[in-house]
Simulated scan of single mutants.
Amino acid sequence: MNTPASTIALAAGLRDHFARVILPVWRGPGFNSALNLPYEAVNPTSHAPMPVERYRAMACARQLFVFSQAGEAAHANVLFDALVHYFQDKQSGGWFYSVDAQGAPLDTTKDLYTHAFLVFACAEYGARSGNRDALDIVKSTSALIETRFAARDGLLNAALDAGFATVTGTPIQNPLMHLTEAWLAAREATRDSAFDTALQKLAEAIDRTFVHEPTGCIAELPLGMADNRLEPGHQFEWFWLVKQAGKLLDGTQLDAALTRAFDFAQLHGVDQATGGVCASLDENGAIKDATQRIWAQSEYLRALATRDDDAARTVLPQQIERFQARFLHQHGWYECKSAAGEVSRADMPSTTPYHLATAYAALPA
């Protein structure tokens, strides 16, 4: 069925706001041209950088993805060079978590979430620019992840110390989700079938360890751990990822599970009056954290566009309008709101444009 012209026009409005308002912030006042690094966050109206304590590799990588996807090659080249210069650990291998205000290593933890975004961003940048060094990083960092982060039962640890000698974070859902995203991008960029094998192994481990059978949702912690939670935004994000993977994940139950998870998250995690997506639920669907973070709203938009059935096509235009009215403004966006609509985080982080860019790319055009 054809997408209504009104939905296409609404999606175009979001993309226009992104190009006209958001991208200029991060190539301008949100970018430290002395270090060639994006600031962690800016003031929501003046766009002045917030006080600097650190720069994270993950934040730089997300910005590299955004400007690569936007076709802004010159800025992407600068970000790639900075990523390699500041964050690559040439002694122990892998990538530092953060550097300080002067660009010296600060947190030298080897963090899976960070490494996943290195792979993801370099895949996008390498595919668009043809930079062979970036594609080499995709492969070498992926190989390092499989060996150095390896844990039990096909899983991967969340964090290790600088020398990869001590596990400081055991397997959790979020970095594994972003690694799935990264390896799907790497597969597309390199056409290397090794990523098929890695993705299948990872998906099987996630299926065994994190899928909450009564709801189909992927839990944040391995099943059975105390104080577990289900995040609606992550169910929508996983829904998109599994649809992107297609037949690659046929050996798992993830596709069927995430279809159920979408329905559960939509029913219990989306405010029917405002369209706001809450942060987390318990396993019975009761709200644990009512905070509405912009990334979860963007993932709901992307999942609706991906689901592409009659019900989703009906909801999507209304949800775009609600999102635009509730979370965007003339200077940028609101990062977090309460269920009542009060702003609970006012600054604008450099990591958020990645969420907006990926969501808007999935919307009809």
Rank of each mutant, 00 (worst) to 15 (best):
L316Y: 14
A279Q: 14
A296E: 11
T314G: 10
A312H: 11
Q266P: 02
F262C: 05
E299A: 04
Q272N: 01
L248V: 09
T314W: 12
L316H: 12
Q272I: 04
A245E: 02
Q244I: 02
R322C: 05
D347M: 09
R307A: 13
K247A: 15
L328Q: 05
A286R: 13
D263Q: 15
A340F: 04
L248K: 14
S280N: 06
L248P: 03
Q292T: 06
Q318N: 12
V315I: 12
L241N: 08
A279P: 01
I294P: 05
K247Y: 00
F323D: 01
R313I: 03
A265K: 08
A340Y: 03
T291D: 12
L258A: 03
G275D: 08
E342D: 15
W238D: 00
W295S: 11
A245C: 01
A261T: 08
A296R: 06
I287N: 12
L241G: 07
G275K: 06
L254C: 07
Q324P: 00
F239S: 13
A286Y: 11
A305V: 11
K243L: 02
L301N: 04
Q253L: 03
D289L: 07
G246S: 04
A339V: 05
D289P: 09
A311H: 14
A265S: 14
R302E: 00
E335R: 12
F262D: 14
K247C: 00
E335N: 11
A290L: 08
A325H: 13
L304W: 13
P317L: 09
Y334G: 08
G275M: 07
G332Q: 00
A339R: 10
S338H: 03
Q324N: 03
Q266W: 15
H331R: 07
I294A: 03
V277P: 01
R293M: 12
A340D: 07
R313D: 02
L254Q: 08
H329G: 02
